[in-house]
């Protein structure tokens, strides 16, 4: 199925699902109880967003299959002859079919790295949803409008932590600098349109400019330095949007999908 809108919805759904999963791995392991709860709350928000995107994608996939009279399974996570739904899309697609950002699948190391990953993504998501809330597709606009309220909260929380850790102790600063080095090469992908994003009326340049400005402001307050001082060329890894992932995604999916793969159709 080569419908750009469906692919884009899967990209949004996959990114929020995978980041939600990564954050949920902190459940019970956060540095203090309140922040453990904060991060799992963010996980829940992201999971809720993922569900809305998957549900809408499933609806469009089912409609287009009906219209085309497709009987054979297509690589969109359905069993033969079945309609797809949010669960089959999340549980029955393979690694190469996932379109999430590489940033989302990077493994948790320390708290600082988790915070930075969340901030870099939430800052992007906020600017993206600000655009999408005026999108000509009403359903996408509705999801973006609703989700933006949650995202604003995530940006505030994670940016405050970036500042606290960056401008904190020598140890916390060192860890944040390390996290920037680890994650920075996965940020470029957010602003490079995949083929399916080219005609969806998303202004990636505008998002990129605003994102850079916002991140620079927060980093300045956090006394953190961008790789190459924020200018110049830094190698950016791409591929997530089109299914070429780092080795980490497979392990997430093995964890996430095991139950449905081993016991098909089992219900909670």
């Amino acid at each position: 199925m080569n419908n750009p809108l469906i692919n884009y919805l899967l990209h949004l759904a996959d990114t929020t699902l995978i980041l939600s999963h990564r954050n949920s791995e902190w459940c019970g392991h956060g540095p203090i109880l309140e922040q453990d709860i904060a991060l799992t709350n963010i996980s829940l928000d992201l999971l809720g967003q993922a569900r809305l995107f998957y549900q809408y994608a499933a609806q469009l996939i089912n409609e287009s299959k009906k219209a085309e009279g497709v009987k054979a399974p297509s690589p969109q996570g359905e069993r033969v002859g079945d309609e797809v739904n949010e669960d089959t899309l999340a549980y029955l697609r393979t690694e190469r079919q996932f379109k999430n950002l590489l940033l989302a699948e990077q493994p948790n190391s320390d708290w600082g790295q988790t915070i930075l990953r969340q901030y870099l993504y939430s800052q992007f998501q906020q600017l993206l949803f600000q655009q999408l809330q005026h999108h000509n597709d009403e359903h996408i606009a509705a999801i973006a409008t609703k989700s933006l309220k949650e995202t604003n909260y995530h940006v505030r929380w994670s940016s405050e932590w970036v500042i606290r850790l960056g401008d904190g102790t020598a140890e916390s600063k060192q860890r944040m600098l390390h996290a920037i080095n680890e994650l920075w090469c996965y940020t470029g992908e957010m602003f490079i349109a995949a083929d399916y994003e080219l005609h969806l009326n998303i202004d990636f340049n505008d998002i990129n400019n605003r994102w850079t400005e916002k991140v620079n402001t927060v980093f300045a307050e956090a006394a953190l330095i961008l790789p190459s001082g924020g200018g110049g060329a830094v190698f950016m890894q791409t591929g997530g949007k089109t299914g070429t992932h780092t080795e980490h995604l497979g392990y997430i999916l093995a964890d996430l999908q095991y139950l449905q793969r081993a016991y098909p159709n089992s219900q909670w």
């Binding site: 309140e34 922040q35 709860i37 904060a38 709350n41 963010i42 829940l44 928000d45 949650e150 909260y153 505030r156 929380w157």
Partner: peptide, 13 residues
């Protein structure tokens, strides 16, 4: 304020 996130998503502590 103790925490921006409370016992459920809709609450702060």
């Amino acid at each position: 304020l103790i925490s921006e996130f409370g016992s459920t998503a809709c609450k702060a502590l």
